[in-house]
Design a protein around this nucleic acid. Structure first.
Lengths: 333, 333
DNA sequence: CGTGTCACGACAAGCGATTGCCAAAAGTTG
DNA sequence: CAACTTTTGGCAATCGCTTGTCGTGACACG
């Protein structure tokens, strides 16, 4: 908590023998005040340890120099990269970074936005659970940037998983697999759809059969049921919605004595922390999640102008790449 | 970004046919206004979709309903639990949560505090890199709560690692180990000291020899050098400053063909995500990190009174427990 | 019925900045 | 040196809300 009284612009003004407005200008708008005066004011301010009040500034100017990021679940390692990237970018721009989680709930997401609206210049919505319509509506009133979600007319930064999914299929096909099952994530998840479409696209023309199972909770615990479901299909390859689920699957398969990759190959998405040292090390579609976070904040900053004239919807698409490790191998014969 | 104009307390006042102050009181201080009036005001406010401006409130009242948490490195999974716990607690109290990282730098930490001082009601400092003196000084002006760091006179929430370290020693001793090396973390790290002291204490009377090596960077990459350094000492047991380092050690040992736990036992701290599925699964000292984050926010809230009268320094000590997995075993003979 | 109490609302003064506008000072030009 | 332009600094309004203080009407009491 602050000490009794902080020095204000008025204190500085008095001490420097000028008006408060002059101090303000000396600080913000250098060209509006005489160089000598400015210098003097700056010195006095420095000497008195003056720090502007972000609150007062924001109240007056409408600019808060703050962005908020909403994630469905801070617990999920998937978001760590995105959070990191966003935080980094924000702090580089000397912008305060608010982190909030929405408990996977669309309602909570909306409430949070409403709640923070006046305190921030914009929102980064990571893997938003809100339907397109809600997002459009919210975008009328707020400055939004989406991560890993594309909605027509809204700025977004996404890591490609469609092209990447094709690569997964090709990889598996080249290993002799003729069918795969996709263990899908939450119903509302946009990337889940993308991934599925990518797999289907990739399978076309490769004589590969693809099946979708689920949805499963995209966490390690979801892997148990997912693995069992996959096994009954008799597929030789399993593509999990994300690495957490994939790790859960690996665990379950090992419990059941199913050899990976000899009997079943497993692929994940995200290349999270740990994907390289689980056993067997996980083949996974890696993407620059931190870049996505970075870009989203960037988009927000571009759009910061309060004007009604929005920049044409900007979309950043970041390339993913398949990291081949030990969980995939030649199809069982 | 906000739409052109948000409805203010004045709009509501006009619409309800009362003074702005009455609206304010109706909202904040129910007993100060007639029940009927209050009800009416509330309805009008609701109908007009009124949302108070946190900025204006904070500017006037001095209470921002916001806390900031500073972590040395958001990338480090060690902090995930703490962050999660703190965020949860804050949002439960309808308090805005600001997350910032300090890049492991004391200077940056101080700067951030200075920068955010006016915008928050308090700071949670996780694994602060600042020396005690700086913390005392900062505590004069700001509301602080420490996580995993104890400083006389300041509120803190720490996960015990001293008693826990003793357990580690006992565990290893019972497996027949007669010596262990501690691979230490950053010099400034408070837990590093605690852990070392705990190990030394534990070793006393158990006929166990303990050696300290390092410091090593507390990350996976640090494990290479750490493992090599440990091997030359000939110790049969290695206790790493944290799980990341331990995982790095495991990796290096495996590269060098050293069997774990047959030739060397490895122990970590924190039980981070992944500690259970690395190979071999890591024996580690687990603690309720999220509880620590939770408690720290709690302490902040208790101290929120701007008054100079501080509550007596409260310290929360949370128990840790040893999770025995596959990386420790009988001493090589 | 006069007077003292109390409850309730309104007024207005901030909180700490920013900024439009104006006036004085300084500089330019013929 | 007059007339005009450009700097430069100050005044005051404003952002949206909180809160101390005051006035008024209702009510109770003697």
């Amino acid at each position: 908590m602050d000490s009794p009284k902080r020095t204000t612009i008025y204190d500085v003004a008095r001490e420097a023998g000028v008006a408060a407005s002059t101090v303000s200008r000396a600080l913000r708008n250098p060209r509006r005040v005489n160089a000598a005066t400015r210098e003097h004011v700056l010195q006095v301010a420095e000497r008195m340890g003056y720090r502007p009040s972000p609150l007062a500034t924001a109240l007056q100017s409408g600019r808060t120099a703050t962005v908020a990021m909403l994630v469905p679940d801070i617990t999920n390692p998937h978001f760590f990269g995105t959070i990191k990237g966003a935080e980094r970018r924000a702090s580089a721009a000397r912008i305060t970074f608010i982190l909030s989680h929405t408990e996977e709930s669309a309602d909570s997401e909306r409430t949070q936005i409403e709640h923070l609206a006046r305190s921030v210049d914009g929102f980064v919505l990571a893997s938003s659970r809100l339907p397109d319509e809600s997002l459009w509506e919210l975008a009328e009133e707020h400055n939004l940037a989406l991560v890993n979600r594309e909605v027509k007319g809204l700025p977004s930064a996404v890591v490609d998983s469609r092209v990447g999914s094709r690569q997964i299929v090709e990889h598996l096909a080249s290993l002799g697999h003729r069918s795969l099952v996709y263990l899908s994530g939450p119903h509302r998840s946009w990337p889940a759809g993308e991934r599925w479409r990518g797999l289907v696209d990739g399978a076309r023309g490769l004589d590969m059969k693809v099946t979708r199972l689920g949805p499963f909770p995209p966490r390690v615990v979801g892997g148990g049921a997912a693995a069992d479901a996959a096994l009954v299909t008799g597929a030789t390859a399993v593509v999990a919605h994300n690495d957490l689920l994939a790790i859960g699957v690996l665990r379950r398969l090992s419990e059941r004595g199913v050899a990976v990759p000899d009997q079943v190959s497993v692929v994940g998405y995200d290349d999270i922390f740990g994907a390289d040292f689980c056993v067997p090390a996980l083949t996974t579609l890696a993407g620059p999640q931190d870049e996505a976070g970075r870009s989203a904040v960037e988009l927000l900053l571009e759009n910061r102008s309060r004007s009604t004239a929005r920049t044409p919807d900007r979309r950043v698409m970041l390339p993913s790449h398949l990291v081949i490790r030990d969980s995939t191998g030649p199809a069982a014969r």
